[in-house]
Write a protein that binds this DNA or RNA. Structure first.
Lengths: 159, 159
DNA sequence: GTGGATGCAAAGAATTTGCAACCAA
DNA sequence: TTGGTTGCAAATTCTTTGCATCCAC
């Protein structure tokens, strides 16, 4: 239950996504290297946005340097295949966006668990800003709250 | 036009807000000190959120240390009279919130000018999250775009 | 008078950079 | 082969901390 991967159908999945990653990199004229593929699969297989040091800790090849993670993530962010998120705690977090549509997050103030929030009504606000003269508008939106589990913790002590 | 203040009615205004700041600090059981009042008036008189070093650069008393600015801003953020904002550039920014209602920002991608966005419809989204089991919900929302001036720059060159 | 606040200097931590070795194309 | 990438170590930069002095209460 520790370092074991679930082997049921993950082998072909893994190969599929690997090919996918290679295509993305080469279509952006970027070299296909081990650290880059490694980081992409880490981001792909984690549903929550990760910090630089979390990514570094999950790397298959432990020789990969922290500096490489910084360089790679900054490259990916510049290429817009990775999104940088600030959850108002100490570290910036990063998530893959090349294959996902625009979404936001709700972070539990206590356990720091993250859920996605798919939303749409923000478009109206963006339209309002367009009327004010702005163009090329985007936004970032994060919610913070106490999740059900953490609220129950406070209410009763143990579930 | 450099270090001069506009003197028309600002003297009485200045005294008024000074008394206001003192009241705020003492109501929160915090000592009234020169750096604190200085920082509060800087935040008050600037409509855009400021970085730590911008605040430090605007201090009347140039002997006030950067460390004091950090300590003071962190104190104010903890007391919730100052709000921390991440505009996805290098530095965190801070604005006074004790006398303002909840609002958001639109930042020009080019000139980095900031306008406020007063909004309401987010409440609906928060209600949705409440139904999912979350409590004590808040959010942060920032918009990014090109302002009218900067768009014109690109379009025609000079106004 | 006394404990909290400040200035100064030094420490700490996150991120970036220089460079030689390495490797993808 | 060749220029981009990496590992390693050193340098930067932002932020925090220790401590003696100062000052608000």
């Amino acid at each position: 239950m520790t370092a074991q991967k679930n082997n049921t159908k993950s082998i072909s999945d893994k190969e599929f996504t690997l090919e996918e990653f290679k295509l993305i990199l080469s279509s952006l004229s970027q070299r296909i290297t081990e650290p880059r593929l490694d980081i992409l699969s880490i981001l792909k297989s984690n549903h929550n946005p990760l910090t630089i040091s979390e990514i570094h800790g999950k790397l298959k090849n432990k020789k990969t340097d922290l500096a490489t993670v910084y360089r790679t993530i900054n490259l990916f962010a510049g290429l817009r295949i990775v999104n940088e998120i600030d959850f108002k705690d100490e570290f910036k977090r990063y998530e893959l966006i090349y294959d996902r549509h625009h979404h936001h997050h709700i972070v539990c103030r206590k356990c720091r668990n993250v859920e996605n929030v798919e939303t749409c009504m923000l478009d109206e606000l963006e339209n309002l800003l367009k009327k004010k003269g702005y163009s090329e508008i985007s936004h970032s939106l994060e919610f913070f709250g106490l999740c059900r589990n953490c609220r129950n913790d406070s209410d009763m002590k143990s579930a």
